[in-house]
Amino acid sequence: MVVLGQGLWTLIKPYVAQVVATANAATPGSFSEVEIPFDSS
Rank of each mutant, 00 (worst) to 15 (best):
A25E: 13
E33Q: 14
K13M: 11
K13W: 06
G29E: 14
F31M: 15
V19K: 00
S41Q: 05
Y15I: 03
S32K: 15
E33Y: 13
K13S: 13
V2P: 08
V2D: 06
F38K: 04
E35I: 15
L11P: 00
A26D: 14
F31V: 13
I12P: 02
K13A: 15
A21E: 15
S40W: 12
M1A: 11
P37I: 08
V16S: 10
L8A: 09
S40K: 03
A23N: 06
P37T: 04
D39G: 02
A17I: 00
V34A: 05
S41P: 09
Y15A: 11
K13D: 12
V19H: 01
G29A: 04
L4G: 07
T27N: 04
S41T: 06
T27H: 08
G5N: 03
V16T: 11
S40I: 09
T22G: 01
P28A: 12
L11G: 08
D39E: 04
F31H: 12
I36D: 00
I12D: 10
P37H: 05
V3K: 00
L8I: 01
G7L: 03
Y15R: 08
T22I: 00
V20W: 03
D39K: 01
V34C: 04
G29S: 07
L8R: 03
G29K: 07
V2T: 13
T22H: 01
V3L: 12
E35N: 15
T10V: 13
G29Y: 06
V2W: 04
E33H: 14
K13N: 11
G29D: 15
V16G: 12
F38E: 12
L8W: 01
I36G: 00
V20S: 07
G29I: 11
L11V: 07
F38A: 06
P37W: 00
A17M: 10
A25F: 03
L8V: 01
V20L: 10
Q6T: 11
L4V: 13
V20K: 07
I12L: 08
D39C: 03
S32E: 14
S30W: 10
K13F: 08
T27I: 10
S40F: 04
G29W: 06
A26C: 13
W9I: 01
P37C: 12
N24F: 10
A17G: 11
